[in-house]
Design a protein around this nucleic acid. Structure first.
Lengths: 156, 156
DNA sequence: TGCATTCTTGATAATATTGATAGACAATAC
DNA sequence: GTATTGTCTATCAATATTATCAAGAATGCA
């Protein structure tokens, strides 16, 4: 029942990118900067940001002064969307997935107890993650950061 | 965010064992029988049942007429307990796990957006699975089975 | 133009996890 | 004492995960 590092890094990087956009609208942020601030291996982060770009969450610009920025407003990006992009379906087992259903090996799905229970789990997870927007996340982070350390604000 | 085959098989096997106990109290059921009824590879199932036994969910008896049965009442076994035994913590990331916490690599956990969100996911998953008893599951399965096919009852 | 910068792409390596199999061993009932 | 059934340990193949490398392509600027 684990989120992969990819999914974890994706969310943390997005928060950083979204936070930057919040501080300096229309600015771009480089992979290397995000990697430094988040402790994510740079080359690995590269792949992740690319996936987010291809998934329509980020947009990018190459060359000097290039970098990444959000492709849409932060309140149109959900955690569910991000995690699905990097980690695939949210459902604990494929036979309860809405977005990518696959039958399981049990003799009869209708009477399969696991199926019945996991449908509820799936709905709970999707309910939380699909309604959790990046902007909400950034808001929470901001609250913590600004209340805790002031010098941080100048550190950027 | 996936449940492993081990976890999946464990639940399905337990339902089968519990169902048997419900039909014939004090009876034992053999690995091979469970394997046949559930389509689970027998030798793999062996390991799983062993883990459940060592975890206190099942008890066993060797030799002729031996087999497995529940070690406690079906309404004292929860899905959360079973899945933790086979798959480890329910938490999507270790830094929000209550049963086996581990710090993550993010610069500051308190202000980590992922942390904040995943705590909610963890609570939702645990809330469902830790209150979902085996007896409830068996009840659901029984409803489906008896309402759907009658011949099945004699098939055992 | 040429050059530095930055993202893009594909390949590859290292490691961990998963799913599964094999075989020797121990207990039980008859 | 023998057939049956669970116990335990080792091992394996396949796959997924995590991460790195290197060559390439776009961009801006001198």
């Amino acid at each position: 029942m684990r989120l992969s590092k990819k999914g974890e890094y994706a969310v943390r990087a997005l928060v950083e990118i979204g936070f930057e956009a919040h501080l300096r609208p229309n600015s771009l942020i480089q992979i290397s900067t995000v990697a430094q601030r988040t402790n994510i291996p740079e080359k690995f982060l590269e792949q992740i940001l690319l996936a987010l770009r291809n998934g329509g969450v980020l947009k990018s610009k190459r060359g000097v002064e290039g970098g990444y920025s959000l492709a849409k407003d932060a309140d149109e990006v959900t955690l569910g969307e991000v995690i699905r992009l990097l980690d695939g379906p949210l459902a604990p087992i494929p036979c309860v997935s809405k977005t990518s259903y696959e039958p399981c090996s049990c003799p009869d799905q209708e009477s399969c107890g696991l199926h019945i229970a996991m449908k509820q789990v799936r709905d709970a997870i999707a309910g939380i993650l699909d309604s959790y927007t990046l902007s909400r996340l950034i808001g929470e982070v901001q609250k913590h950061r600004t209340s805790k350390t002031t010098e941080w604000q100048f550190d950027i």
